[in-house]
Nucleic acid binder design. Structure first.
Length: 479
RNA sequence: CGGGCUGUAGCGCAGUGGCUAGCGCGCUUGGUUCGGGACCAAGAGGCCGGCGGUUCAAAUCCGCCCAGCCCGACCA
């Protein structure tokens, strides 16, 4: 366990992978493209799950589970959906040693299997809405993978709702997008832009795709969550109708929304430093660690002092006491910084004699000595301060690297070369041709059209073609 | 699927024709340590990615294959 974090020098990608591997969040698997999530990484995921699941329940959703295998014909029922996912499907052709009559695809997402069931469950407007979420794994045969950010198999949640009216479905889409924004900002300490995707970037089969986008420390953008208004596309594909209160027959309106283990990657890339991972206190599986420091002759006394403090803290937070004799205190300091424990409590003979404890913040490594009686309340304060500081730091960084760019020459320069990056808030006419040209020439894409952007676009001209702008889009290079 | 790089101990690497293949970290045992990755001593651990060739002699040279990583095209 003597690995050390490599400074970020050579390239950001190596640095990111280094943090993930050294913090033991994940590992490469025997199957290329798939990822082993190690206990420490999974603990983070469980914290995220718990918070998200609570928010889903609070907005009236229930959990359910649908099969891993989907008949291939289901995927073909929605034209755009199959076109979008066909290149990355894994297909099961044999079962029990025999060729199957119909191949089964391993779900890349569950719209089709779920809507095949909704057809059976929905007859009347009284059956609506259906507000279901599923925690599951999905598989997409990606050409290039990276731990947490894009693995072939990943864990996620996918919400699939059915509504009687377009208005209701649209409200649901935006409600869940806002749940994601809240989660990102309040739990992950990750400031995000939320808004709608351009047609080129939307989900295969959606009418509108909404997303939250966050800036990573290399100033590239990461899509951290999506919420789709699916219109009646899947209801049409699976013939899902209901009888309304007037006795007429209507097609059902749909939404779907999801976030994945990619969020762990987002957390790493947004907050980590060269000493390793930095985890926001609200998501930290371990919020504080007590490191006792002693010589042989006073070991028992220091341990007793530390154990008493541990007992007091245990009831109100997740705190561990590292009483391992085999590693030195210095080793432990480094280790817990590497894995991102928000607060370290140092207890040595000097502190014991003075009735004190030393508290060290992970985010800025500031040390303070406090009376041992005050430790619980001080830690509670510090956890809140760290949570806020991480958000502020990330937001300041993002804002300092976001620019209003109205001129295409300046725009190109911004995305040119190795150290290019950041968010460009630029006027756009709305045409796919201009969007494609930008992508071809700069590799920057429209990440999101933030809410209210139409207002700021008034009077401006598209950076590419110069015609009247309809939107101010956030352009960035993305993961 | 293109371009580049790398396969040698658990991990990171050195060795680029020569006889018993090394170093650091980790691991094992014992002892001393412990306020920022401690130290001493003694150990364990290798078909040098695979196959074939050249040679008196191959980890080292040549050919083919395989695997992994990075950079592109595609994507949450």
């Amino acid at each position: 366990m003597a690995e050390q974090i490599t400074p970020r020098a050579e390239n950001y990608s190596d640095w990111y992978i280094d943090v993930v591997l050294k913090a033991k969040l994940a590992d490469y698997s025997p199957v290329k493209g798939c990822m082993v999530i190690r206990p420490r990484g999974y603990a983070l995921w469980e914290k995220m799950q718990a918070a998200l699941d609570g928010m889903f329940k609070a907005t009236g959703h229930q959990n359910a589970y649908f099969p891993l295998l989907i008949p291939e014909s289901f995927m073909r029922k929605e034209a755009e959906h199959v076109e979008g996912f066909a290149p990355e499907l894994a297909v099961v052709t044999h079962g029990g040693g025999e060729l199957l009559e119909e191949p089964l695809v391993i779900r890349p997402t569950s719209e089709t299997i779920i809507w095949s069931m909704y057809k059976k469950w929905i007859q009347s407007y009284r059956d609506l809405p259906i507000l279901i979420n599923q925690w599951a794994n999905v598989l997409r045969w990606e050409k290039r993978t990276r731990l947490f950010l894009r693995t072939a198999e990943f864990l996620w949640q996918e919400g699939h709702t059915a509504h009687a009216t377009e208005k209701e479905a649209r409200e649901e889409t935006l409600r869940m997008l806002d749940v994601y924004r809240t989660f990102a900002e309040e739990y992950m300490a990750l400031p995000v832009y939320s808004g709608v995707k351009s047609d080129a970037e939307k989900f295969a089969g959606a009418v509108n795709t909404y997303a939250i986008e966050a800036m990573m420390q290399d100033r590239k953008s990461l899509q951290a969550g999506t919420s789709h208004f699916l219109g009646q596309n899947f209801a049409k594909a699976f013939d899902v109708t209901f009888q309304n209160s007037e006795g007429g027959l209507d097609l059902v309106w749909a939404t779907s929304w999801g976030v994945s283990t990619r969020l762990i990657g987002a957390l790493v890339m947004a907050h980590s430093d060269d000493a390793g991972l930095v985890v926001p206190p609200k998501l930290a599986p371990v919020q504080a660690v007590i490191v006792p420091i002693f010589k042989n002759q006073n070991r028992a006394a220091v341990m007793e002092y530390a154990t008493r403090l541990h007992a007091r803290l245990k009831s109100t937070m997740t705190v561990i006491l590292d009483d391992d004799d085999n590693n030195s205190p210095g080793w432990k300091f480094t280790e817990y910084e590497m894995v991102g424990v928000p607060i370290r409590i140092e207890i040595g003979p000097r502190d014991m004699d003075a009735g004190k404890a030393v508290l060290v913040r992970r985010d800025n490594r500031q040390k303070e000595t406090v009376d041992v009686e005050r430790v619980p309340e001080r830690i509670a304060e510090l956890l809140a301060e760290i949570q806020a500081a991480l958000f502020d730091r990330a937001k300041t960084f993002r804002d300092e690297n976001s620019f209003d760019v109205d001129d295409y020459a300046a725009f190109k320069e911004m995305f040119d070369g190795e150290k290019s990056g950041g968010f460009a808030l630029s006027p756009w006419c709305g045409s796919g041709d201009c969007e494609a040209q930008v992508k071809a020439e700069t590799k920057a894409t429209i990440r999101v059209l933030p809410f209210g952007n139409e207002e700021t676009a008034k009077g401006k001209r598209c950076i590419v073609c110069g015609t009247a702008a309809r939107n101010v889009a956030i352009f960035a290079k993305a993961y």
